[in-house]
């Protein structure tokens, strides 16, 4: 924990180079963001459709099917969007980052870079960090949007909930600052956590095939736990009870 915190600060300290060369960050947004796009969009759609169905079942018993939009959108924007997108991000992009950096270390690519007087922290690690941190909130927003669309498909198009009340009740209940902004803050924090864990595990992995594969597993496990714990902490902070 202490070591990874130190690693995090070193990483921030070495970020100067990659801001002077945005091309490096663009590359990493591509590999962690664009390549996670499919899994995020498809999962978002299905999670939203399931929410639409389950929510309808439950709300129907209270005769308040019109609140379906509220249920789908609030659960996605506040919780499921940031959390599930981050979990998927950890297993798709996080594991890839760990494996890539672990392999670069195992095949002496990082050592070679240092021998060429190029700092691997600045050249390899920092761009991946910023790429991940920028991608994560965007992915979470796409996940939520896709999920709401899925809920709409099932609720309105398939089951026949009134379209007007679906959207208007949603708009009345979802607050831009308390719900949407908080969701964005959550996903940014998760993005920082996942990429730092993934980078650290890769950088710290024993330079063997076995070490890299273990580090990859650890990335997924540790960052999933971190996401869920941070989610509790953040929710507790944001919870007003009003």
């Amino acid at each position: 924990m202490g070591v990874s915190t130190r690693f995090f600060f070193l990483l921030l300290l070495h970020s100067g180079t990659c801001f002077r060369r945005p091309q490096l960050i663009l590359r990493e947004i591509f590999s962690s963001g664009v390549l996670s796009l499919i899994i995020i969009l498809v999962s978002g759609l299905f999670v939203g459709m399931v929410l639409g169905m389950q929510g309808y079942e439950t709300l129907q018993t209270y005769g308040s099917e019109e609140a379906l939009g509220v249920l789908v959108s609030l659960s996605l924007v506040r919780e499921l969007g940031p959390v599930v997108a981050a979990l998927l991000f950890a297993s798709r992009a996080g594991s890839a980052i760990t494996a890539e950096i672990g392999l670069m270390k195992a095949t002496e690519q990082l050592a070679a870079m240092e021998m060429m007087a190029v700092d691997p922290l600045a050249r390899v690690v920092a761009p991946r960090f910023w790429g991940g941190v920028i991608s994560m909130p965007l992915l979470a927003a796409m996940f939520s949007a896709m999920g709401i669309f899925g809920g709409y498909l099932v609720g309105v198009v398939l089951i026949g909930v009134d379209e007007g009340s679906f959207w208007s009740q949603m708009q009345a209940a979802v607050d831009i600052r308390e719900d949407i902004l908080n969701g964005v803050i959550k996903s940014t924090v998760f993005g920082i956590a996942v990429t730092v864990i993934a980078l650290f595990e890769g950088y710290d992995a024993p330079p063997t095939a076995e070490g890299v594969s273990r580090a990859t597993t650890r990335t997924v496990v540790t960052s999933s736990l971190a996401i869920l714990m941070l989610d509790f902490v953040l929710t507790a902070f944001m919870f007003r009870g009003v």
């Binding site: 392999l103 002496e108 690519q109």
Partner: peptide, 26 residues
């Protein structure tokens, strides 16, 4: 180190770059 060159045991080429980009890297 800018005045040193080092050849690693198995080359340690950057696997995500072409031969050309590897040589151009430094």
């Amino acid at each position: 180190r800018r005045r040193l060159g080092m050849l690693f045991q198995f080359g340690a080429l950057f696997t995500d770059m072409t031969v050309y980009d590897n040589v151009a890297f430094p």
